[in-house]
Design a protein around this nucleic acid. Structure first.
Lengths: 263, 263
DNA sequence: CAGTGGTCTAGACCACTGG
DNA sequence: CAGTGGTCTAGACCACTGC
């Protein structure tokens, strides 16, 4: 491994002083290196939790200086795709880590910190194979009628059901996923996707609305019919910006709230 | 101006090769420079829209290299406190710019892009001077009973009232602010705060819940009593991390939704 | 054209990790 | 101790802006 690398980057001949071609639409060297790293992440060559090659290693592969590689990695770290650890190396980010367990869950208790109510209880209500309706297909970039996996679950904190969510996954990338696997897996669902299916969720978009509780909510969340609930529609994306999960959740907000920081 | 700068940074004697003292809790040079810039922003010496000194200028002031200053400014740019413009300079960020008009408003129409319904209509319902209740005082780091400015307004898009919000401001920093000023000002409220009161909002925290419409909502948002609404409680902070505004808003989400990106 | 931010280099030393 | 990321330098050239 660590063979010298001397192709793939634009204008290798002119790299001496500035490294970027002056003729056309070439990106800066560090962008090309970032792209190379990104490709290695996408292909699964470097898996979540792995250390990526050291800065000096990459620098010599590409024939650039350490600073140029640093800038590429800096951006990836800013996007939470890798994590730098001084003295140890740079690692591919993963959902399996303790301190990022809830990176995508913005619901927090009104008082106390998250986790103060003890661990979340996860109850799978159902999990089945089905066909994508038009709206689900659109969200997941599938065709209407394509096979999808569908799950419904309830999350409880301190014994109280707080979240009900319906999850849709395209069947193809998750071949072999069963209700048992989902129900028995301890830990974040996105960690399971990483380790078992090489699907890494890196980004998500949420649409938030207020809706009245339906009869289903009435049963599963133990609220009165018509009680206002937060409705969260989330589409989660992979490294390749492919939509890989649709999630429609309903949150009770009588003891919890959705917390957001605007910068 | 541009006098040489040779104090204020730690261990100026040891700057030759590494620049950071090895003895105690000294920050890296670029952090100290970032702190200096931050102070100039806080003090109002460099105002929103102004250009800050060039990188070379700052570098020579502090006796460091351009790269070190760049790293300091990079972080400020990442925090949206300054904006870099190649060939022109680095500028103090402002709410008065077109493309950041709605940086803090996450409500978007279900279909179409923001602004497709035409400009927002702002109606001030009332604006008065009052005394902080316990919860308002806590949010704004005031004492209960301190004087606050209080405003209620409705925002309409395409002729439909969508947002009702109550706003509380500490009276002291906003001396001279009247209902007229608020009602007549065209443009974002935060831009007014910047130009007239040297108060710059740089960050905000929001708590989101679902609530039933009250009789007040019924009148102002033209919805049925009990209709689910999004409740947004926002506290906005200045450069100094002082809470300077409390805003309690109610959003109709029948034609709009709150959009959030999780990274 | 001069001035600004943007990219890149080659080399140095530091702080931290683990064997 | 060697190896990693983190900081810093001095100097170069590029791309862009505005005069």
């Amino acid at each position: 491994m660590h063979t010298p690398f001397d192709s793939g980057l634009s204008s290798p001949d002119s790299v001496g002083q500035m490294g970027v071609s002056t003729t056309a639409a070439f990106s800066p060297l560090y962008q090309q290196i970032k792209g190379f790293i990104l490709n290695s992440l996408r292909s699964g060559e470097w898996k979540p939790g792995d250390a990526i090659p050291s800065e000096m290693d990459l620098a010599s592969r590409f024939g650039v200086s350490q600073g140029t590689v640093r800038k590429a990695i800096d951006e990836l770290a800013a996007e939470n795709l890798v994590i730098r650890r001084q003295g140890k190396g740079t690692f591919v980010a993963t959902h399996a880590e303790q301190h990022v367990q809830f990176r995508f869950l913005k619901l927090v208790p009104d008082s106390g910190t998250r986790g103060s109510e003890g661990p979340a209880q996860r109850d799978i209500i159902e999990c089945k194979r089905g066909r994508a309706t038009a709206d689900v297909a659109r969200a997941l970039s599938l065709r209407t009628g394509d096979t999808v996996l569908q799950a419904r679950r309830v999350l409880s904190f301190g014994g109280t059901p707080i979240i009900m969510e319906d999850i849709w996954l395209p069947a193809a990338p998750f071949k072999g996923l069963t209700a048992e696997r989902l129900a028995n897996y301890q830990g974040p669902m996105y960690a399971l996707f990483e380790t078992e299916f090489n699907v890494r969720m890196v980004r998500a978009e949420e649409k938030i609305r207020a809706i009245p509780a339906s009869t289903i909510h009435q049963d599963l969340l133990r609220v009165k019919h018509g009680t206002p609930l937060l409705s969260i529609e989330r589409i989660a994306y992979t490294y390749r910006d492919e939509p890989m999960e649709l999630r429609r959740a309903s949150y009770r907000t009588d003891t919890h709230h959705y917390h957001n920081t605007l910068g």
